[in-house]
Design a protein around this nucleic acid. Structure first.
Length: 643
RNA sequence: GCUGUUGUAGCUCAGUGGUAGAGCACUUCCUUGGUAAGGAAGAGGUCGAGGGUUCAAUUCCCCUCAACAGCUCCA
């Protein structure tokens, strides 16, 4: 008998050789029907794998991320099986699960696989799935593996086998399809009830552009039809919310080929959005003890040699700007920290003035690769809501905590309710690539984890993801349609204080090196706004809306009264427009709705007579007649402290 | 940067080896209307830029730029 510890801490006894599936069956039939794989001592395995000794076992279902990954990986095999059945002789690269769904890289030879083929393949996949073919694991000697794929004439699989150790090679077979694969897989294909091929794209074999380009077939699958429908609905919604589309429609920003790619031009309405966000954060930062600074858009080359960025990124950046006379060279600043370090170093510092928190909405320029540019989310010129906190090592914890408070305040104000903190620490094996003493790192890594816990943040820890100069904490937010984005970041830095030889005089009258914390709640305004637009589908909260109201006239007879109302609104600090076009009210309402203007103020005969206004709210409808003061109250309650 | 797709009016898109079309937006006129599109007329384009084939190119070919998708990258 062996002892199996389950996630709830309970321990059960089973015969040696029991499988995850059988354990599930012993708990409930329903669970057994849903088990996709088993996590045995932290390792994800086939649910059909016999367990030979005491172990901790977690049964994975569709509700576990690992369960989904196995499900999608198995679906990739099903896709391959279907493709092989329909297009005999094609050759297979790799077919992994990805964040949502899976893909398979295929060499179709001369055939051009396209959109027209999708339905046929989906149908075949479902047909094969319904056979409930088991995924059968088989350990094969290297020679046998090579023989199989040689006979099958698949050079990609052969190349993969070459890199594997004899004795560690496994095949998985379902139906007539055999694939080189280390697994694990779901018990049988019958779990897969809904599939959708999403798109095809070229992808180099092994990601190397010198290699042959294969056709990557992207697809997604689900255990229920409804989940597929929901997913497709989400994709549709994402298309509708695309910030590039809304940005154009709402006249927030544009691009010009003459100005250059990746260099956004902010239109008046977009500029209001930026201004609102900056004013909002500025207010919060002043309360939190930050001091604002302003630094130029360029910096001498020497600055970046000192910071080390020139060596690391110099070649991949915008090239230096030269002055007419001497051999002076300036670089467009790719980050603000060196400038801020110079401000710190501009005079001797006492421990009494630490922490020193320097903030700047600093515009930086980075030469992003051509193919990487994407709307506002990846650009070549952007404004960071940057700040650098210079503090003593023993202040890192408190400062970190304060930054987390600030970020949480910002997220809440902007309607991001769900987020997790991703903590990036050193590689546990190889610590050689990091700068800074072991002691400082240990302290900072511990401090970050403690603070995150004390703040009650949901955290994930990624080892090996820390920057070479220090550990960091990134906020991953979930938007209104369930997508995850990395937003605010807090990074500890031991490198720059060292390179810039920053010092402060301690109570012991000795020189000490401060620690620097980089932080940006938004990250970049451009990227943040792109996420915000998609999060709220262009329906900004009232305090951010570029146009908060529109005064709509019933006919030109009321133009004068409408102007009075409009002027009163403007005088009260509201932003909006007066629509006195020669159009019917229905048309004006429609246009205001389409332009996502939160409040429509309608004036006609009744309103003019009674010196009132009729108010209609976007997406909600008529609020009825009210006085101007009542409208003001609506505004006040909706904008709270942010107006 | 690599591969593929696309580029026609301000926007969304048809179309053709014989120098172009729709809807919306815009201008003017009619209409003076009550909670998501009133009517009519008009104006608007070197068909992304450059080169080639041709009697003739927006259409075919080459090259270039940009956008989009994917790959690789991200201080």
């Amino acid at each position: 008998m062996i002892h199996i510890t389950l996630p709830d801490g309970s321990v059960r006894q089973y015969e040696k050789g029991i499988t995850g599936l059988q354990i599930a069956l012993s708990i409930s039939e329903g669970l057994a029907r849903n088990v996709l794989a088993a996590q045995i001592n932290q390792k994800v395995c086939d649910a059909t794998l016999p367990i030979q000794e005491d172990a901790t076992v977690k049964l994975l279902t569709w509700n576990d991320a690992e369960g989904k990954a196995v499900f999608w990986h198995s679906s990739a095999h099903l896709l391959a099986e279907a493709l092989e059945a329909l297009y005999p002789g094609i050759k297979f690269g790799i077919g992994p699960a990805i964040e949502t769904g899976f893909y398979y890289d295929i060499d179709f030879g001369d055939y051009k696989f396209s959109q027209e083929d999708f339905a046929k393949v989906e149908q075949k996949m479902i047909e094969l799935a319904q056979k409930k073919s088991e995924y059968i694991r088989k350990e094969v000697p290297k020679k046998e593996a090579i023989d199989y794929f040689t006979q099958k004439n698949d050079p990609y699989k052969l190349e993969l086998i070459e890199g594997l150790q004899d004795g560690q090679i496994t095949f998985y077979q379902q139906g007539n399809f055999i694939d080189l694969c280390k697994g694990p897989h779901i018990p049988h294909t019958g779990f897969i009830k809904a599939v959708k091929i999403l798109n095809v794209a070229g992808a180099y074999w092994r990601g190397n552009e010198k290699n042959k380009m294969l056709t990557r077939v992207y697809a997604v699958s689900f255990p229920k039809e409804k989940e597929l429908r929901d997913y497709l609905h989400m994709l549709e919604e994402a298309r509708k919310r695309d910030h590039r589309k809304l940005g154009k429609e709402l006249e927030l920003f544009t691009f010009s080929e003459s100005v250059g790619m990746g260099l956004p031009l902010w239109l008046p309405k977009g500029a209001i959005l930026r201004e609102r966000l900056q004013t909002f954060l500025r207010k919060a930062q002043i309360k939190a003890g930050y001091q604002e600074v302003v630094t130029p858009h360029i910096g001498g080359k020497a600055l970046y040699i000192t910071s080390g960025h020139y060596e690391k990124y110099g070649k991949d950046s915008f090239q230096p700007i030269r002055t007419p006379e001497a051999d002076e060279e300036f670089l467009l600043k790719p980050m603000n920290c060196p400038h801020h370090c110079e401000i710190y170093a501009s005079r001797p510092r006492s421990y009494k003035e630490l922490p020193l928190r320097l903030a700047e909405f600093g515009t930086v320029y980075r030469y992003e690769q051509h193919g990487e540019l994407h709307g506002l989310s990846r650009v070549r010129g952007f404004t960071q809501d940057d700040a650098h906190i210079f503090c003593r090592p023993d202040q890192v914890k408190e400062e970190f905590a304060k930054v987390i408070d600030l970020v949480q305040y910002v997220f809440k104000a902007l309607g991001f309710e769900e987020y997790t903190a991703q903590i990036s620490l050193r590689d546990r094996e190889d610590k050689s690539k990091y700068i800074g003493s072991e002691e400082l790192w240990n302290q900072a890594e511990q401090v970050i984890q403690e603070v995150a816990q004390e703040k009650g943040l949901k955290t994930t820890v990624e080892y090996g993801e820390a920057a070479f100069y220090g550990p960091k904490l990134d906020f991953m937010v979930r938007d209104a349609i369930g997508r995850k984005w990395q937003l605010g970041t807090i990074q500890v830095d031991y490198n720059l204080p060292e390179r810039f030889k920053l010092e402060y005089i301690g109570p012991d009258n000795q020189r000490h090196r401060p620690v620097m914390i980089h932080r940006a709640p938004f990250g970049s305004l451009e990227r943040f706004i792109s996420i915000l637009i998609e999060h709220c589908a262009g329906n900004f909260p009232l305090w951010l809306s570029p146009e908060q109201f529109a005064v709509l006239t019933i006919s030109e007879r009321y133009n004068e009264y409408a102007s009075e109302v409009y002027t009163k609104c403007i005088e009260h600090g509201m932003r909006g427009i007066l629509d006195n076009r020669d159009e019917k009210i229905g048309k004006k309402i429609r246009d205001a709705e389409v332009n996502k203007i939160p409040y429509m103020i309608i004036v006609g005969e009744k309103e003019m007579q009674s010196q009132t206004i009729s108010v209609r709210k976007k997406l909600e409808g008529d609020l009825g007649r009210m006085t101007f003061e009542e409208l003001l109250a609506h505004f006040k309650s909706e904008t709270k402290e942010y107006l």
